[in-house]
Amino acid sequence: MKWKNLFVAACLFLGLPTQASEQPALNISVGDWPPYLSSDLKHNGVIAHLISDLFAAEGYRVNFQFLPWPRAYSSAAGGRFDATAVWMHKHEREADFLFSAPLLDEQFVFFHLKSLPFDWRRFDDLTGMTLGGGLEYSYGADFDRFLATGKVKIERVSSDTQNFEKLLKERVVLYPQEMNVGYASLRSHFSPAEQARITHHRKPLLINRSYLMLPKSLESSPALLERFNKRLQLWRENGRYQRYFDDLQQGKYQLEPPAVAAPTSE
């Protein structure tokens, strides 16, 4: 007991927290977007893990709350969260938020069946094809303009699963999706044999960047953003940032299936 009291006294004298739980907490609103953000993954996904560790290095602990994307945005904009993740940059969002340095580099590609000898260099190479797509989803301004020409048909549904099912049944020829998101969906919802039938074209359709956003309504946001950005830049330079995504490619964020108890003899 004496040693414990001395330890606590030393911590108070030095200004150190006696427990990790006494670190200041940051509450961050997020949407479900596996493999980057999901309550069904280790560390809530690779982006949640990265954000948590970046802030931990600055002396904070992070609590994530998963919400529908519109609520995640509006709640953070109103100052009910310290930040929200992750979002692409749009000028209209600057009215409500400060943007971090780029946190995620996304690569959208065309998924297709391996049995299809598909290649493309220009959008016009897709003329006459039927594509799958997400509801009310943009694949970048340039491709949106091409879709508006009517040279291709796009059939929009509500989920990756539906789009990959249509691809396997050859009801669509191509499905544009972010590469890691697409493969995460395939691993989660399709058999190894079905996964083996699908590949993606190496040429990106779109390179997009996503950001952590901090609400302008909170006075703490500018200083917090500066610390976050400096730590993020340091980790990009020393290689630690890339290690998170190397772990993602190796499947280290997948939860282990529950162990099945061995049958016991009567």
Rank of each mutant, 00 (worst) to 15 (best):
A72E: 05
E165G: 11
R145T: 08
V157F: 00
M129R: 06
A10K: 09
P34I: 04
S265M: 01
Q162A: 11
A48D: 06
S21K: 09
A193C: 03
N208G: 00
D160N: 15
T264E: 08
R240V: 06
Y175P: 08
S159H: 03
E106V: 14
G15D: 14
P222C: 13
P117W: 00
G128P: 13
Q242I: 06
E170I: 12
H189R: 11
S220E: 07
F123C: 13
L205W: 01
K203N: 14
V181W: 06
A10V: 09
L113C: 15
Q233H: 04
Q195V: 11
W69Q: 07
E170H: 15
A95S: 13
K216Q: 13
D125T: 12
V62F: 03
L255Y: 02
L26Y: 11
F13R: 09
N238K: 04
E22T: 09
S138R: 09
S265K: 02
F97R: 02
T264Y: 02
N238G: 01
H200L: 01
V260Y: 00
E155T: 12
V181S: 10
W120G: 07
T18A: 01
L131K: 04
R80P: 00
L232T: 07
Y175G: 07
F146A: 06
T161F: 06
L212R: 07
R187E: 03
M1Q: 04
M129S: 03
L16D: 01
L234C: 05
L186H: 11
Y139R: 14
L54R: 09
L37R: 09
D142S: 04
F81K: 14
F245Y: 06
F146K: 09
S100G: 05
G79D: 02
E226Q: 06
W33V: 13
L131S: 03
G133K: 15
N5A: 10
I198F: 01
N208I: 06
A259C: 05
H200S: 07
L67M: 13
P204F: 01
E92H: 12
E92Q: 14
F111D: 04
I28N: 10
S220C: 00
S38N: 13
E178Y: 10
A10W: 02
I28H: 07
H112M: 07
Q65W: 00
R197F: 06
E219M: 10
W3M: 06
N5Y: 00
E165V: 15
V173F: 05
K166N: 09
M88N: 12
G128D: 12
S188R: 12
V172E: 04
L50F: 08
E194T: 08
A101E: 12
I51W: 03
G59Q: 05
K252P: 11
R231S: 01
A95P: 03
A57W: 04
Y241N: 15
F146S: 07
R122T: 15
L225R: 12
R236L: 11
A196K: 02
L206V: 08
S158M: 15
R80I: 04
R80N: 11
T149E: 12
G128I: 13
Y244F: 10
R121A: 06
G150Y: 05
